[in-house]
Design a protein around this nucleic acid. Structure first.
Lengths: 123, 123
DNA sequence: CGGTTAAATAACGAGATGGTTAAATACCAG
DNA sequence: CTGGTATTTAACCATCTCGTTATTTAACCG
């Protein structure tokens, strides 16, 4: 939604680490704070930044406030990238065309020119 | 390469607008500055931020310093997103599996389960 | 109630950011 | 060398950011 806030939130390594942790599953603030050499208030504010950026959401469970990943902002970043993929993803055009053909119901017996790194990039 | 710098650079709307302009083609600093209600030094520094973030590159042509998009950092952002696509892109897993099969040299005569929005996402 | 735990808020300071104006640099053309 | 154009650098200022410590809110438990 608000790319300014989203990119700004993602610019901090602590916040990206928090997201990486949340990718493993919902958890509490204290638990999120453990790996970091900083006080709880600092983590608490990082979470607020992530929340206002649309990157996480928080619920309430007794005195805990479990956090989870919120897809909206991530999707917005991905969509913003759409206008630029052609600059770095050589397989973009070819693959796009190929998928469109498949969707049109036309089954192609020939595989696309081999190395389509996209999505497969485990590296 | 350095996601901190890259995301920070992308957090500014002026800088994203500059990138959008550069997506149309290489151009000069003065030309890039025209749409903005700010002085040249300000634009010049935005360009420096983009350059240090690996988002643009600059060459020299007489007294002009044409800028162009540099794919590295954009690709890094896209790759960072890989760990999170499953949260917002429902077709991710299915398509990934399908591409792996193709890369394995196995030509599938059956199209994947129809609606793969990815890449075709023209809205 | 009083005590404990989880988390947020307040107030503060060092350093980064984003703009300004004024001056410097780099190149081309007489 | 002189002048003109394109761009960067320097110095400065207001505001934001990220950390701190101290305090406060909220919910549970005996």
């Amino acid at each position: 939604m608000n790319l300014d806030a989203t990119f700004a939130a993602l610019a901090d390594p602590t916040r990206r680490a928090i997201l990486a942790r949340l990718a493993l599953g919902e958890t509490s603030v204290t638990d999120l704070a453990k790996p970091f050499a900083m006080t709880m208030p600092a983590v608490s504010r990082h979470l607020k930044v992530l929340e206002r950026a649309g990157l996480i959401a928080r619920s309430r469970e007794a005195q805990w406030r479990p956090c989870r990943i919120e897809p909206r902002a991530l999707k917005a970043v991905d969509e913003w990238l759409n206008d630029y993929r052609r600059f770095y993803d050589e397989s973009f055009d070819r693959l796009d065309v190929y998928l469109k053909k498949l969707q049109a119901g036309k089954s192609d017996t020939k595989a696309p020119h081999a190395k389509d790194k996209r999505h497969g990039g485990k590296k």
